[in-house]
């Protein structure tokens, strides 16, 4: 992987990886750090001669591991603490009620079991296909679909979302 390739990969995947991390940790700064680290680790794997067939899947795998590590190392990071600090959403003329609801969604996302958080963020934030998600989490397309369905059902249920679409 030469410099041009790397820059191309970075420009293509930096935002999605950042969003994925942000959805999981609800902090811009932490999400930025994790994104950066994900790219560095991916580069190192290239350097070691590891064969990476699907760069997107690889980046998501690395980012997922980093998020898990982050929560393991920072057990004290609770949603209450995040609430104290305030959420890091970029304030683009958003109103206070929006923030309160975003906070609520964040909290519910993070309450989901790890495997559901992963697939829900990939499916709903990045609009990835179940096939792509299945490649990343190392499961069959069918079980990925089941996880997505259950995850979003669980999230909507917890948020008391009325009339949620079963098909989605």
């Amino acid at each position: 992987m030469n410099d041009i390739d790397f820059e191309k990969i970075y420009n293509e995947h930096a935002d999605p990886i950042f969003r994925y991390c942000f959805f999981r940790v609800s902090s811009r700064e932490v999400a930025k750090d994790l994104t950066q680290e994900a790219f560095i680790r991916t580069w190192r794997s290239f350097e070691k001669g590891q064969q990476i067939l699907n760069i997107k899947a690889f980046l998501y795998k690395v980012a997922t591991n980093l998020v898990i590590d982050y929560y393991r190392k920072h057990k004290e990071v609770s949603l209450d603490l995040l609430k104290e600090k305030g959420f890091d959403f970029v304030n683009e003329g958003r109103q206070a009620p929006d923030f309160l609801d975003l906070e609520l969604v964040s909290r519910e996302i993070q309450k989901l079991p790890e495997k559901y958080q992963q697939v829900v963020s990939m499916r709903y934030i990045e609009d990835m296909s179940p096939k792509e998600i299945a490649d990343i989490i190392g499961a069959s397309e069918n079980s990925a679909s089941v996880l997505i369905h259950r995850g979003i059902k669980m999230l909507k249920k917890n948020l008391n979302v009325e009339d949620f679409d079963e098909q989605r």
């Binding site: 929006d98 975003l102 948020l159 008391n160 009325e162």
Partner: peptide, 15 residues
């Protein structure tokens, strides 16, 4: 929370 609201919030995350 209604469905539209939920979709809107998800869109914020997406953005």
């Amino acid at each position: 929370m209604n469905k539209d609201r939920f979709e809107k919030l998800i869109a914020v995350f997406k953005s």
